[in-house]
Write a protein that binds this DNA or RNA. Structure first.
Lengths: 187, 187
DNA sequence: CAACGCCTATCTATCAGTTGGTAGGTAACG
DNA sequence: CGTTACCTACCAACTGATAGATAGGCGTTG
């Protein structure tokens, strides 16, 4: 089939990148997982940088869709905001993985420019969604709202990172609860 | 001199690990930076895993000393707590680097066990210090105090990670300000 | 004192494994 | 015939690691 291999490569690369980052991606293991030969990947992606950028782009597109779905499903902005940490929780319960773009933020120095751009877009997407929710109903200072949105995004990413280093989803839940108690997230 | 090479290796490895992680460490570049040959590193460290563990251990030891120094310098617990983000800020102003143990938390799956242990100890050291400050004066629930300490640590690490991905210390400052506004950190 | 053995610190040379990437061929399909 | 999708075979660069040599310093012993 025309694009099933391409999609399979993207899916496998995503899984790997969420566990071992951009540097952890390699063509041989990727090809094995998909069931083709390493050289065949070049038929779908001209270079590792292009593959990385495509994977990161698809990642934020999927996340954006997921967030929008959550919004249509849970109309109340506050309830929706409360559910936000669920998105990052999933990666942990899926083999102690983490947000691909958090990993790549760490790998920043080694990232091709095209990948860097997608990683930043992931953050933008999250912050924009959070800002929308935070400003819903109240007409608060736009700058302050975005600051809050960014703080929530960064804090949740940090919680995921710490929980991963202990392979402990319970720690993640406790950290999120701590954010609620402190007032960063709605209780 | 007996240990000057060993110390130079540790220092260079630390700088690299804060920018490119454990996987970003390699014996040739490290040796070049120190001014010796790659094979000579094996005289001081039996393997890369041992080197990594030694670097991470030294890292949390230094951080612990730095935090203790801050405590004797700034007696007031609240003022001291307010200054905590300075520690993570330094890495960003030092060539857009980041906390070595945050990077290694991302690399968790690829880390030798000995390195994993040191990474976790780094978090323990930070949380213990924060807990001490948070409980000073008030006799609050110990569990709640530690939960708050962990939340602060994770949030600050997340802020550093996000700021790094934009090479923007100003963003870090803004995120910390956001944490203060939200009530996670003392204003 | 001098010869000797030994330790420390470093070197050269090399290895096997892995990496991203390339050249060029093959087979199916419309 | 041309396009798509894949293959085999290969390469240069880089990786952690090892073997074995060298040179200087230090203490012991004849």
């Amino acid at each position: 089939m025309s694009s099933s291999s391409r999609e399979a490569i993207l899916a496998a690369a995503r899984r790997t990148a969420q566990a071992r980052g951009y540097n952890g991606l390699n063509f041989r293991d990727l090809a094995d997982e998909v069931g083709i030969k390493a050289a065949s990947i070049y038929h779908h992606f001209p270079s590792k940088a292009d593959l990385g950028a495509a994977v990161a782009r698809r990642y934020w597109e999927d996340t954006a869709a997921q967030l929008e779905a959550m919004l249509t499903e849970t109309h109340d902005p506050v309830r929706c905001l409360r559910r936000y940490p669920e998105v990052f929780r999933k990666a942990l319960t899926n083999g102690n993985r983490m947000c691909m773009c958090s990993f790549m933020a760490a790998e920043y120095d080694d990232l091709p420019d095209a990948v860097k751009r997608e990683v930043q877009t992931f953050a933008d997407v999250n912050v924009a969604w959070l800002s929308k929710l935070l400003s819903a109903g109240t007409r608060a200072n736009a700058r302050k709202t975005e600051q809050r949105a960014r703080a929530i995004f960064a804090a949740v990413a940090g919680a995921q990172l710490m929980a991963r280093s202990r392979s402990d989803v319970g720690l993640y839940d406790s950290l999120i609860e701590g954010y609620r108690t402190a007032g960063l997230l709605p209780a």
